[in-house]
Each structure stands twice: as structure tokens, then as C-alpha cells.
């Protein structure tokens, strides 16, 4: 029992991170109709910028204040992500509005390569570390409730908490503020949004900045856990089955989908893994997503697709 709960909790905590990255996908898709394949590259660039800026400023400060160095690192990475958002809007989206979805998808593939390339040119292509003081040791909890208690990885727990706060914050921002309302308006209908005075260009910059923020947080969390290296690109793509499962247009779908995939992965790894061999957690998420698609092509929460004949 304790072990099962442990596995579940582990899954939920990873799932929260998937939710966060999936939210990045969903926001951009809703507001600009673009499936942003470059989300993974954005995570890499954000993590690289964070790692290197804090490393450099730490050296410049003589290693006195890791905290200050990290703050500078975060600000630096934030500026980089803003520059990415601005550049993408100015030189890509603005020219390509109303193009086919497939065209835009290919464009984001291009953006991904450019970001990966430039990121490594500027910041280097070795493995760097991010140290934001995440505790590495596990703790035992709920000893009174369950025999033997439940072992929880503190780092995962803090990461999940951070992701949950950000997801919650973004949701409130989108639902309750007038900027959020403007973003939803653009997501619903470009023409109508413009007619009430909402400028598309500014909105897209904001949305890509939000995606950049999501990428930064994900980059810091994963970067501090496994080091900042090229494979961070693929980590973000593990949120892909999440958006398939949750529906590309649904914020709650991203959240719930992330949790389902997180838990599913962990449970399959622990309970099915021994029978089918290792590595199951990598493809099992896609199997779950595909099964959902068979029954609900629009995803769990996506808007129903109606074909008018």
C-alpha cells in the first residue's frame, strides 16, 4: 500500500511538470493557432541562459553570493526569453498570419533548430549545472497513517509545488484579468478581437512571453535535477502526449492530462515494466494518448469537432 501511494505521488509530481509544459503548448496554440514545436528548444535555451548567466555572475561576484547570482541568472534568462518572443512575433508570426497549420508547424520546427543552434553558440554546448538550492534528500511522510510511511523526494515535491503555483497563477491571470480576457478573445476570434481594439501583435508577444516563462521554470527545475544539456529538448516533448490527451485547446485538459500521464507513466514503469522490459514509461504515454484519441478525437477536454456538410 505504502509503495503504491509512493508511486502515485511520484507520478503526480512529475505530472505537474508535464502540465506546466503542456500549458505552454496550449496557450500558444489557442492564441495564435500555432502548434509550437519549439517549446522544447525554448526550455533548453532558458535553462542554458539561466545556468550560464548565474555561473558568470557568480564568478564575477567572487563566489560570495549564490543567491544574487541566481537572481541575475533568472533575470538574464527572462530577458533572453522576452527577446525570443519579440523576435518570433516580429519576423515570423506577423508575416504568416492565416497560413495553413502545417506551414506554421514547419516554421516552429525551424525556430526550434535556430534556437538550439544559437543557444549553444552563445552559451556553450557542454553540460552545465543550475544550483538553486534544491534539497536532494528524500523524506518519509505519513508515518502515522501508513505502515512504514511514504518516501517522498523533496526536490520533486518542491518542483511540483512550484509548477502548481505557476499553473494556478496563470489560470487565474487568464480568467480574471482584462489582459487575460484580451488573450482569450484573440484565441477565440482574431477579427472580432481586433475590432474591439485588441492588437494582435502585442497579444502574441505576451503569449510567447508566457510560454517563455513556462519554459524557464521547467528549464530550471529539470536543469537543476539532471544538469543543463541538450536532452532537455526531448524532456519538453514528453508533454506532447499530454496535449494530445487533454486537447490542444483546453487549459484544464493540459492540467488534468499532465497528471494522468505522469501517474500512468510511473505506474506502468513500476508494475508493467518488469514484464515487458524497461523503457515502457517512454512509449506508454503515447499509447494512453492514442487510446483516448480513438474514442475522443478532440482529446479529453478539447472542443468537439463538428464537420458541417
Amino acid at each position: 500500500m505504502g509503495f503504491f501511494i509512493e508511486t502515485m505521488l511520484g507520478g503526480l509530481m512529475t505530472g505537474m511538470l508535464y502540465s506546466l509544459v503542456a500549458l505552454g503548448f496550449v496557450l500558444i496554440f489557442k492564441a495564435s493557432g500555432v502548434f509550437n514545436f519549439a517549446q522544447g528548444a525554448m526550455v533548453l535555451v532558458a535553462a542554458l541562459a539561466m545556468a550560464r548567466f548565474s555561473e558568470w555572475s557568480n564568478a564575477a561576484l567572487g563566489g560570495d553570493s549564490l543567491f544574487l547570482a541566481n537572481v541575475i541568472g533568472i533575470i538574464g534568462a527572462g530577458i533572453v526569453m522576452f527577446a525570443v518572443a519579440w523576435t518570433v512575433e516580429r519576423f515570423v508570426l506577423r508575416k504568416l498570419v492565416n497560413q495553413e497549420g502545417a506551414t506554421l508547424l514547419m516554421v516552429t520546427l525551424g525556430i526550434a533548430y535556430v534556437l538550439e543552434g544559437l543557444g549553444q553558440t552563445f552559451f556553450g554546448s557542454e553540460i552545465y549545472s543550475i544550483n538553486v538550492g534544491m534539497p536532494k534528500d528524500p523524506v518519509i511522510m505519513f508515518e502515522g497513517l501508513i505502515e512504514g510511511g511514504v518516501m517522498i523526494n523533496k526536490e520533486d515535491f518542491i518542483a511540483a509545488l512550484l509548477a502548481a503555483v505557476l499553473v494556478g497563477g496563470l489560470t487565474v491571470f487568464f480568467q480574471k484579468t482584462s489582459v487575460g480576457r484580451a488573450l482569450r478573445a484573440v484565441a477565440d476570434d482574431h477579427q472580432a478581437a481586433q475590432s474591439v481594439g485588441i492588437p494582435l501583435n502585442k497579444t502574441w508577444v505576451i503569449v510567447w512571453c508566457v510560454a517563455g516563462l513556462v519554459a524557464l521554470v521547467a528549464g530550471i527545475i529539470w536543469g537543476s535535477k539532471m544538469g543543463v544539456q541538450f536532452s532537455l529538448v526531448t524532456v519538453a516533448l514528453r508533454a506532447l502526449p499530454v496535449v494530445i490527451l487533454g486537447g490542444l485547446t483546453s487549459v484544464p485538459g493540459a492540467i488534468v492530462g499532465g497528471l494522468i500521464i505522469g501517474v500512468g507513466e510511473k505506474l506502468s514503469e513500476v508494475y508493467l515494466g518488469p514484464y515487458v522490459g524497461g523503457g515502457i514509461e517512454i512509449w506508454f504515454a503515447y499509447v494512453m494518448a492514442l487510446i483516448v484519441l480513438l474514442f475522443r478525437p478532440q482529446g479529453l477536454f478539447g472542443e468537439k469537432i463538428i464537420n458541417r456538410v
Binding site: R181, A185, A187, D188, D189, Q191, A192, V196, G197, I198
Partner: peptide, 23 residues
């Protein structure tokens, strides 16, 4: 207004009208 209604379908009536206050 639009010939083919172009409301923000996901939003409530109040929110739709609120977008008019954006500027």
C-alpha cells in the same frame, strides 16, 4: 458588428461585452 456573428464563443455574455471596454 459582424454579418456572420463573431463572438468569443468560450466566454460568457458579460465577458464578451467586457472586451469592448478593453481600450
Amino acid at each position: 458588428t459582424f454579418q456572420n456573428i463573431a463572438l468569443f464563443k468560450g466566454m460568457s455574455v458579460l465577458d464578451n461585452i467586457m472586451t469592448g471596454r478593453n481600450l
